[in-house]
């Protein structure tokens, strides 16, 4: 089934638009349904689709295991680091108000950064789960 040209061409065509849609969901989550959790899963789904058609090794070339593990930690760090930054500005943990002069601008900025952290972690974890299950080699 993998050699079927229909699957190959469709997955190649869809790969880019799915990622762009994921980014749209990520950064438009303030105005419509969406946000970091959904966006991370959608972007991971693009890579998983590619892996299902072209094999795991080719996806590992563009997104190696180590990079995935770094992105996983990076997302949590971005989220927690935002809290530390607001402490450094003299406010409470995860209080975004000192980030800009007007409160709505500050909240907007804080929410976008935090959602980015969520998106990164969820993307990396979902793809990491798929890598772990698909690339598992049982001892026989």
């Amino acid at each position: 089934m993998r050699d079927n040209p229909v699957f190959k061409i469709v997955s190649k065509i869809l790969f880019g638009p799915i990622i762009i849609y994921g980014l749209y969901v990520q950064f438009h989550g303030d105005y419509g349904p969406g946000g970091g959790f959904q966006a991370g899963v959608i972007v991971a789904a693009a890579y998983i689709l590619y892996a299902l058609i072209f094999g795991l090794e080719r996806v590992r070339k563009i997104m190696p295991n180590l990079v995935i593990q770094y992105i996983m930690a990076l997302g949590v760090l971005v989220f927690a680091g935002t809290g530390i930054a607001s402490i450094a500005f003299g406010a409470n943990y995860l209080d975004y108000s000192p980030f800009a002069d007007k409160i709505y601008k500050a909240q907007h900025l804080g929410i976008i950064i935090v959602e980015l952290g969520v998106g990164l972690t969820v993307f990396a974890v979902m793809l990491g789960l798929f890598y772990a299950f698909a690339g598992f080699k049982p001892k026989k």
Binding site: G29, G32, F79, Y93, Y104, Q107, I111, V114
Partner: peptide
Amino acid sequence: LFHIPNVVTNVLASYRGFDTL
């Protein structure tokens, strides 16, 4: 406060940021 229409995002990322973390 936020000028963001999606209440779910507001609550998720700002009011209940600890929870989401």
